[in-house]
Amino acid sequence: MIDGFLALYIFMLAAFTGYEIIARVPVILHTPLMSGSNFVHGIVVVGAMVALGHAQTPLEQVIGFVGVLLGAGNAAGGYVVTERMLDMFKASKKKEGG
């Protein structure tokens, strides 16, 4: 069980981690990073799967199904968009290297 103060510690440390990761980032990476963090919270699909797995009534099943659908969209869409953005940095690097 993650409960009470243990949860608070995790919340706090994770928050500092997120803050530190962004704190010294060049402006050119802000959009890709926003997109990347958008992908990372796509982990919500895992929670939606659990919620759907617990669902017993048709109403809960519908809500769970919509949740998994949206969560999967968040993860997949976030990945594709971030990858496409970052791919451009590769292309320009190749040209620089000759």
Binding site: A14, T17, G18, Y19, L33, V40, G47
Partner: peptide, 20 residues
Amino acid sequence: LQNEAMIIAGMVVGAAGTLL
């Protein structure tokens, strides 16, 4: 849901997103 991956990933994004 007592899901560690969601707690950590969500909180990291929450903080990073706020700063951004």
